[in-house]
Design a protein around this nucleic acid. Structure first.
Lengths: 151, 151
DNA sequence: TATTGTTATACTCTATAACTATA
DNA sequence: TATAGTTATAGAGTATAACAATA
């Protein structure tokens, strides 16, 4: 093997650049469905929840007024619905429409295929090791007060 | 050890969530200097280049008109300067000011410390392995037409 | 004619502050 | 009074299309 292009970037640059590569893939598939990253994240967090506007603001780390606009636009496109929250008549729950769920599923599937393709340069054992190490960092950061889950 | 919270996320979710954690850290330090992510990326790519507007558009994957506005705002804040490009009188080169370079360095240093802290949960050997595997994916994606380098 | 950069325009995304309705 | 959500406003960030200057 030549040494050519294979110098290690170091943990800091390797993780930073990996983050941009991975988010770039997600952004690309979202854009193919005419979704911004934040709209894609929205559909992602709604896959298994029907949060209130308030909870959504916390999940997406946005101000509640930003969420109002985000949901306005998503609702206008038929991706999500506002629904009453039962007991508390101030609260509103947001949920995916059938169309929104379909698009969320499509984007996730495309992203999965892309990540699988990007990890083709790793052996099965290496891929497993990477997954294990990445999981450790994510879990550790979550304990420290990190972000919620994603796409 | 209990099995508790340690199930592997799988390579797709592990990489996706890791990307959000890492970018979240970068965004946090950038915001502490009142920089958006794109402004932080801009300072990052200018650390070792004086690109034309055109080249900057390619490096940041933006339309040239978006770059005009980005540089307008950065220049107004004293972070960058426009300078003539020598031979081609149509072209303009963008470079960091002293203040811009200082801020870029500060953000990078804070981010480095944060990544180091986040990888504390890994042994030195594990950290090296993660760095190696992440580097492989980044290099492989770059060959496939990925993004340029970052912060 | 082709390329480099800017301008005009329109839209998304975001936060702050003030507001309404409910608790 | 406090909480959930919206509205009004302002500004960053983005792309498209039309433009000016230079090659």
């Amino acid at each position: 093997m030549q040494q050519q292009d294979e110098e290690d970037l170091g943990i800091v640059d390797a993780l930073a650049q990996l983050a941009f590569v991975v988010q770039g893939k997600l952004a690309r598939h979202a854009a193919a469905r005419d979704l911004s990253m934040i709209q894609a994240r929205l559909l992602g967090v709604l896959r298994d929840r029907e949060p209130t506007m308030q909870e959504l603001a916390r999940l997406l780390d946005l101000d509640k007024s930003s969420v109002t606009g985000l949901i306005d636009r998503a609702e206008k496109r038929g991706l999500v619905q506002r629904a009453p929250s039962g007991d508390d008549r101030r609260a509103i729950r947001v949920r995916l429409t059938k169309s929104g769920r379909q698009i969320a599923t499509d984007v996730r599937r495309l992203f999965q295929a892309d990540v699988a393709s990007a990890t083709q340069c790793l052996s099965s054992a290496e891929s497993k090791r990477l997954s294990t190490l990445a999981t450790r960092i994510v879990k550790s950061s979550a304990h420290a007060g990190g972000l919620p889950r994603m796409p």
